[in-house]
Amino acid sequence: MNETEQIELTLTLDGELVTFTLGETLYEVAQRYGREIPTLCYDPRLEAFGACRLCMVDVQGTRNPVASCTTVAQLDTVVHTESERLARHRRTLLEMVASENGGAVSVDPLRGYASQELGLLIERCDARTDRFAGAHSGTSKLDDANPFILRDYDRCISCYRCVRVCAEQEGDYAISIANRGFQTQIVTEFDHDLRDSACTFCGQCVQTCPTGALADRKALRNA
């Protein structure tokens, strides 16, 4: 037998033996096998970032759950995508996220392609929107004078998908992250309006935003 013959890469996913390819993440494997792991900071076009922590899965032999989006699949690991502990974490995380905007999560679907993600997840995971009340994060820039992009950062949950799509997909680097922690805010250079920045109004950020914090002004106008 040919010694260099490739051994088949397998791991156990929720009790089922499954195959994977070298370099695939646990999230990608699970998705191929029909698991619907919740995510908020994930966009398949972007490098996995590991911010929202909703995609946590249990891996046998590790004390804490791991973020499946940033964890590369390893031979023979035993992975569980659902458990009581995971459900509790996901609920708490979503309830904390909802609290960032005082529990208001439903938005007009015309805002953008991904704008319903947060609302739908909260429903699916049975998360409440009245817990963890406290300060509001993000400050809207509704006065950014441009006809295309509404910047309603009161709804921003700091997933940085907009920043990453702008850099990784468009190469524009028009927006970035100012401050830190709960004070984080999406900004252009020197916090000016988009038209005074490197923004090309391609609208990619609008379409990846999972909360409708960025919205398509044209679509809303024509509605």
Binding site: L40, G50, A51, C52, R53, L54, L93, M96, V97, S99, E100, F132, G134, A135, S137, I157, S158, I177, N179, R180, G181, F182, Q183, T184
Partner: peptide, 13 residues
């Protein structure tokens, strides 16, 4: 730092 949700929101709350 504000990268991940549990710490960014949790420390504040």
């Amino acid at each position: 730092c504000g990268k991940c949700f549990p710490c960014r929101i949790g420390t504040q709350r």
